[in-house]
């Protein structure tokens, strides 16, 4: 067992976990943050994507102890209050989901994508950078549309309706 301490969604948390506990298990089972999903559990699907010190990673492929001392943002922490984050609003508006299981990971990856491409996104870049996120319902078309719209909304160019 090891002590872990990290800042999750702006809140300092501490705990004592088995060393083999995955970060995603710690988030879901110890902290009750079940918005981060486990899809494939083999590093492929990206349903478990969170931000670790500002960068998108797969929380099923890192131990909680490895992340100790870091800042973690999950889908629950993306928007600070009752409003949706512009990327969440874009997924809603453009129907970038069907069953919704992959959506938290898609959105965390999409927000990271915007960070990595300060010059803006195009369809090719979005499709390329969604390599690590799998959706079994949509065929990706509306996800790509949502990411592009969310990126524009984040840059302040257009308003995305949340309602």
């Amino acid at each position: 067992m090891s002590d872990v301490s990290m800042v999750v969604n702006g809140r300092k948390v501490t705990g004592n976990v088995e060393d083999r506990t995955l970060l995603v298990q710690y988030l879901r089972e110890n902290l009750g943050l079940t918005g981060t999903h486990v899809g494939c559990d083999t590093s492929q699907c990206g349903a478990c994507v969170v931000h670790l010190d500002g960068k998108a990673i797969k929380s099923c492929s890192i131990l909680a102890v490895q992340a100790s001392g870091s800042e973690v943002t999950t889908i629950e922490g993306l928007a600070p209050d009752a409003d949706l984050h512009p990327m969440q609003a874009a997924f809603k508006e453009h129907h970038g989901l069907q069953c919704g299981f992959c959506t938290p990971g898609m959105i965390m990856t999409a927000v990271d994508m915007v960070r990595r491409h300060p010059g803006g996104l195009d369809e090719k870049t979005v499709r390329n950078d969604l390599e690590g996120n799998i959706c079994r319902c949509t065929g990706y078309h509306n996800i790509v549309k949502s990411v592009l719209a969310g990126a524009e909304a984040m840059s302040g160019k257009t308003e995305t309706k949340a309602a």
Binding site: A56, I57, S61, E131
Partner: peptide, 9 residues
């Protein structure tokens, strides 16, 4: 290598 998420670690 891998995908953007894997490349971060």
């Amino acid at each position: 290598v891998g995908d953007p998420l894997v490349r971060h670690l």
